[in-house]
Nucleic acid binder design. Sequence first.
DNA 1: TCAAAAGTGTTGTGTGTACACCCATGT
DNA 2: ACATGGGTGTACACACAACACTTTTGA
Lengths: 222, 222
Amino acid sequence: MNQKAEKPMVTVDIVVFTVKNGDLNILLVKRKFNPFKGKWALPGGFIREKEEIKKAAARELEEETGVSGVYLEQLYTFGEVKRDPRGRVITVAYFALVPDDKFRLRASYDAEDVQFFSTKSLPLLAFDHKEILQYAIERLRNKIQYTNVAWSLLPSAFTLREIQDVYQAIWGRHLDKRNFRKKLLSLGLLRSLKRHKRGSRQRPAQLHSFKSTRPIELKRFF
Amino acid sequence: MNQKAEKPMVTVDIVVFTVKNGDLNILLVKRKFNPFKGKWALPGGFIREKEEIKKAAARELEEETGVSGVYLEQLYTFGEVKRDPRGRVITVAYFALVPDDKFRLRASYDAEDVQFFSTKSLPLLAFDHKEILQYAIERLRNKIQYTNVAWSLLPSAFTLREIQDVYQAIWGRHLDKRNFRKKLLSLGLLRSLKRHKRGSRQRPAQLHSFKSTRPIELKRFF
DNA sequence: TCAAAAGTGTTGTGTGTACACCCATGT
DNA sequence: ACATGGGTGTACACACAACACTTTTGA
């Protein structure tokens, strides 16, 4: 190995997904400083000297949303030489899956605002964050085909309608209710609770929960 | 973003796969310097100041094997704080797929030897390279299920037996010849050549080539 | 003539997909 | 009573998996 290399800076950026009323949303922060002051960007920041990379992502996520213990997976490392006008900055991108009911947004030191946006109507993004986001959506779409990660987007008790909405939001297309339920229930990984979801002005829906929350590889899923 | 962070060093490491007589092999280099002097390690090195990360991986690969233009994909970024005794070193791992007939190994400045090893009988590896390698194998196994990347491991003309061997080497299990051929041919992506592979003391096998080499996403593949 | 790999079809089983009606509730 | 989403079953098409024998060559 040749030690002559100049050291780049290394950051983490996090694509935080949630599903809000049937729509896939991601978290953005409004930058308080240059470059891209006033523009929306993915939450993120520098990795500390003796901090594991994933820990850094979890810390940044916790700072912006107050949530911890959610699904967090490394996505890809973006390092184009000129992606940051300040110099060589390599960013390790992560994506997080957060249930709609869990977070409490907070502005932070370098963000003047924090907000969820529907992936259907996004503002212009700073840096190469649009590319990162597209990559994250693609990964999520692929991943729900052979894992149960999408479940991380749900609260602990949910209706079958709600879980179908999560899949539809990610896929961006409608699924047949009967086929969806048949397939999902045949996996044998749900427990149906005694309780029903009341309060809407329709027939109350049976609530369900997962027997286990840990990640599972499925043969194939839709 | 908080600028107080100490800059880590950033390297690339490459897992170079090939299939040699029915066995999945990877390229290792014997380290000439400390740390881990004399131990086998993945080829790799530092990213240069104004060099794209993938370019760095391609350059290191070319230096050790003389090949270029092969399949090269970013795998994962490993950054455990203490993975390198010299200090904080974050490595962006790549994997490459190289046809058996293409390379010409060369020792380089910091490697005293370069050699392919069967994944069935590997030496002890330096750093966390065992972990990187396991991750790469897992990724390759998953990837052949829904893409045609494995084709990058074949020469331009090959027999159906040879392509089956590639899949079997990666999967680590035997596949039924008739089912394999039926599935593969039904994709309509092969062209059967006029030539036959003679010279072995069995019946000559029809040679084939790919109509197109570019990467394709398949619905599912074995 | 023998050894070794090439080549070739059929059948059963399981999984995905398409599709329509009645039910329970709140207003 | 009515609007709204909840809940349920069947039939067809397709893909995967299991399985054995004949052919062609070189030695």
